[in-house]
Design a protein around this nucleic acid. Structure first.
Length: 560
RNA sequence: GCGAGCGUAGUGUAGUGGUUAUCACCGGGCGUUGCCAACGCCUGAACCCGGGUUCGAGUCCCGGCGCUCGCACCA
């Protein structure tokens, strides 16, 4: 990073703090690492970006929005794998006090130490006793788990049970699957989105908004039927190829259709979601020349993932992953099924009903029950496995290892035809997960323009109209002769218009007020001057061109 | 978590252990000004927190918190 760029980053951060976009949280108490406030300007921008994000996905027509708690019981995150996945097992060198990850130390001695439980790691560590990478000593403390989730207790005292603040919003969509399935009249594909906070107790938060302990995220869980041919309309993106970095290779410029036909993108829905992600990022003001999609290498992906692409955006901190689009297979629903014993499945009907004909033996409950008592169930299982030709009486071996003599009176012919018209299957999931804070950061970074005006540096935030925190700034040319009252009234009328945010500024010279508005990216400045008092017209000045046009207040209010 | 550097008004900064802590931009008020950070006058605002050394600490020492960078970690 050049010095010029570092200076720019410092000036940008200073401006964001000074003007109320982003501020370190709880600063008067000394601050708190990895926690930020969206200020009086940034707060509005955040909610607009959240709304634009929702709008983009709701367009699909089969998406609903839900909201689940951030406080999450232990068992939910145990089932999802987070209790295991989000823990690092640490051990301290007793000689130099350097902390090391136990699995990293043991890598040369085990094919996959990352998968070991704490006690197994402890045993292996005791057995191998590797040298400390820092001081070469061989004296390790007990292995302890450092979990990256925030612990909490749900409920007070003895009735409390352990829980966590959620590390992602996704689990709420999975645990709500059955309600979603009913809502969509049991027809796939469908999706649920959630925009909200996630929490990770990062060991070392860094780089401002890039790694936070509490962050805004927006996720879609899109449930699909893996038995139907995957298809998606990729033609909307045929006229602009995207920068892709396929698994283990270098950048290529390809349309989503081509990348899918060539098998680079392994599922058309992934390709479609990459396209929607591209549209969303462009819409909120990301410079698409500094956007690329990188495919995870197979050893980088979670074991259950079938394909995964990250949207990476280049900014002051280099290329940063801001979106992950993953084909998660049936992993999540299956995990919650196993943990709870509940069914999280969808029904599909076969093209042709499948019939199975059985023509063999089963037990006669009236006689076999009293005869075999507790073993009757096992006898039934064993008898039903026997071929039709079996003569009775006959000795059968049971699954508990014992054998019993089954007589003719204990059995009866079992003849039936089972017709199955369909089956229950676990849907597959495609998950686009957005780090909203990282995206907001890059929107700000890409919008921030330092230009020269009258030989001085002049700052302008070229935010798109859709995400600008303020739509209109209203200025009286001077705060006298009734221009101030008229300007204030227009400001109020604008604020009363649904979805419009106006800001009144009557302090300092008119040029200073334009400069202040430009710095927070207000697209249009309206000035009430002497002529306004006479004919009800105002000037509207465009942020980027500084051109002014005069229109009537009436038509302004109608078009706002 | 380890190591190094840093922490002074809203922002950016100056400050040999010794006056009322510097400067600029900034914010507010009044005046002036017929549209792009104009001008004049007035005014507001800071030594991260806690100990210690000293007659005296923004300055030196220790601890904490925070920030930046590197290692480690994470996505």
């Amino acid at each position: 990073m050049s010095e010029e760029h570092e200076g720019r980053l410092e000036r940008l951060s200073g401006m964001l703090k000074r003007r109320g976009f982003l501020l370190p949280a709880f600063e008067i108490h000394g601050g708190a690492k990895g926690l930020y406030d969206f200020g009086p300007v940034g707060g509005r921008m955040r909610s607009r970006i959240n709304q634009v994000w929702l709008d983009h996905w709701l367009k699909l027509g089969n998406i609903v929005e839900i909201s689940s708690p951030t406080v999450t019981p232990y068992s939910v995150l145990e089932a999802s794998g987070h209790v295991g996945e989000f823990s690092d097992f640490m051990t301290l060198c007793r000689s130099c006090e350097e902390a090391s990850r136990a699995d990293t130390l043991l890598e040369p001695h085990h094919p996959n130490p990352d998968a070991l439980k704490r006690s197994e790691l402890q045993d292996l560590l005791d057995e191998v006793n590797p040298a400390c990478p820092a001081c070469q000593a061989k004296d390790w403390s007990e292995v302890s788990a450092q979990n990256l989730m925030f612990n909490t207790t749900i409920g007070a005292g003895d009735s409390g049970r352990p829980g966590f603040l959620r590390p992602e919003t996704a689990q709420g969509m999975f645990t709500s699957f059955n309600a979603l399935y009913r809502h969509f009249r049991e027809r796939l594909p469908f999706g649920a989105v959630q925009v909200g906070k996630g929490y990770r107790n990062e060991i070392a938060p860094r780089q401002g908004m890039i790694r936070l302990r509490e962050f805004n995220m927006a996720e879609l869980e899109y449930f699909i039927n893996p038995h139907t041919p995957a298809e998606a309309d990729l033609t909307p993106w045929d006229d602009h190829p995207l920068t892709l970095i396929p698994d283990g290779t270098s950048e290529v410029l390809l349309t989503l259709s081509d990348a899918t036909h060539q098998g680079i993108i392994r599922h058309p829905t992934i390709a479609q979601f990459i396209g929607i992600t591209y549209d969303f990022l462009a819409h909120v003001g990301i410079d698409t020349a500094r956007l690329r999609f990188r495919q995870h290498e197979s050893d980088e992906m979670a074991h259950y993932a079938l394909d995964c692409w990250d949207a990476e955006i280049e900014g002051s901190y280099g290329w940063i992953e801001c979106v992950g689009i993953a084909h998660r297979g049936c992993y999540d629903l299956e995990s919650h099924e196993k943990a709870t014993g509940k069914t999280l499945r969808a029904r599909r009907e076969f093209d042709e009903p499948r019939t199975t004909t059985i023509d063999a033996w089963t037990i006669n409950g009236a006689t076999a029950g009293p005869a075999f008592k507790a073993q009757a169930g096992m006898v039934k299982q064993a008898v039903e496995a026997l071929p039709k030709e079996t003569p009775f009486p006959c000795t059968v071996s049971l699954s508990d290892g014992t054998s019993v003599e089954v007589g003719e009176e204990h059995v009866k012919p079992n003849q039936k035809t089972i017709k199955e018209t369909g089956e229950w299957y676990i849907p597959h999931v495609i998950e686009p997960a957005f780090g909203i804070d990282r995206i907001i950061w890059h929107v700000l970074d890409h919008s921030y323009q330092e230009v020269t005006k009258n030989d001085e540096m002049y700052v302008r935030m070229e935010l798109s109209d859709t995400v600008a925190p303020v739509d209109y700034a209203v200025f009286p040319l001077f705060e006298k002769d009734g221009m101030d009252q008229k300007a204030w009234k227009l400001h109020q009328q604008l604020c009363q218009t649904l979805g419009v945010v106006s800001m009144y500024d009557g302090s300092g010279s008119i040029g200073r007020r334009y400069a202040r508005a430009d710095e927070i990216g207000v697209p249009k400045c309206i000035t009430i001057d002497h002529q306004s008092l006479e004919d009800g017209t105002v000037t509207i000045r465009d942020r980027d061109t500084t051109e002014q046009v005069r229109i009537s207040m009436e038509s302004l209010l109608q078009s706002a």
